[in-house]
Design a protein around this nucleic acid. Structure first.
Lengths: 204, 204
DNA sequence: CGTTGGACCGACTGCCTGGTCGGTTTCTCC
DNA sequence: GGAGAAACCGACCAGGCAGTCGGTCCAACG
């Protein structure tokens, strides 16, 4: 396993830099040479580790993008007691990260879905699968929230999940070229508003 | 003016085809030759009418994209009495169009904002300006709705507008690779839910 | 009928791209 | 310390790109 160590390290460095540049400039608009130059490596090194640019990207999606989405948006919500509150806090934190990131180019997943849509079915599938994991998890959490009395029983969990994901995709696109701070505040405020309509009526 | 007629016709054809391909494949992923080939025209014709690919695209944004957004999303809402209802109907119709379009690649505006973000400031500005027109119009309509008693007076119109735009951007991204019919239904259902939280409480 | 100019043609240039491949360095293990 | 494999180098190729430019076609006009 020791002999693999160097290889693993290089591959990991390539993936990191690759994701960074693909995210910043888009996949089709980033050349393999761009990545190599920024790493001080050569063509040979790249094609020694990866068979093609496309395969390289798929690796990045599975390794890095999925993990990112999971740790930022899925894990912090998973199985929490009060789902609406957990989701709100989670999304607010995600937006906070985006807000303070001067190099923000939108939600990675949404950006790539957009770019590959209609151009590469296979990659699109990998990306939408990540979405689906997120969605399934939201639905499960919401359903649990119903039995625990945190969510109105008549609400359509699938629809709520869709609506949450939609709004997050959208706000992240808006944030890249607007006042991040204000947008985040407005978004969370209205999300809370929306969530109120999903909560059981409290009889004071 | 008669001598301009032919020129105008050609330019218009170029813009139509240009938008179609840029929308389908992205700006950077569509070559000028692609457009020309699909029109049966030559390089000479293109550079006779437009100084550059970029300038060409800016023309398309101002001529076609703006009109499209205006006629589909702004005009049908503008100055309506019951704003929440008008917005709901308008977005539903917009999604219906998207649903029945087999060649749907998402919301034009959001796609382009995504693609040019961080790569071309000037174009990004043209695109976000269109967003702003939409937003301003939503806010105005909502404010009017307050005085007319259709919208709760304490709601933050700017925030609501932001939230509406976000969710629409997002659902259009999701629709390109999901069950359009279901997504549309879910979206409108939750939008209505959300809007309920903005309406004045009806004392039955 | 000759000339003029707007609309268009298409070969060409210089540059960049993904990918190949013969060769070199570095590591590992005997 | 030497052999063999793993990791990496960089010149090279074919194809695609935006943009150029000398030339052609043809309607309108005098």
């Amino acid at each position: 396993m020791d002999k693999n160590l160097k290889s693993m390290t290089t591959m990991h460095r390539m993936q990191q830099t690759g994701l960074e540049l693909f995210y910043k400039q888009g996949f089709y608009n980033t050349s393999v040479d761009d990545i190599l130059k920024s790493l001080g490596l050569s063509k040979g090194a790249f094609y020694y580790h990866y068979p093609s640019k496309e395969e390289f990207f798929i690796n990045i999606v599975q390794q890095l993008v999925f993990r990112k989405v999971y740790s930022m948006l899925i894990e912090p919500v998973e199985g929490r007691n009060n789902p609406l509150h957990a989701i709100e806090v989670c999304l607010d934190e995600a937006l906070e990260t985006a807000e303070h990131n001067t190099m923000d180019y939108g939600f990675v997943l949404a950006n790539f879905i957009n770019e590959f849509n209609g151009r590469n079915e296979q990659i699109t599938k990998y990306l939408t699968d990540i979405c689906k994991v997120w969605e399934v998890n939201l639905v499960a959490t919401l359903q649990k929230g119903k039995t625990d009395g945190f969510v109105e029983r008549h609400v359509d969990s699938e629809a709520v999940a869709t609506y949450i994901i939609s709004s997050y995709f959208g706000i992240r696109t808006l944030m890249v070229s607007g006042n991040k701070k204000v947008l985040r505040y407005q978004y969370i405020q209205q999300l809370r508003n929306y969530f109120r309509s999903l909560s059981p009526v409290v009889i004071a």
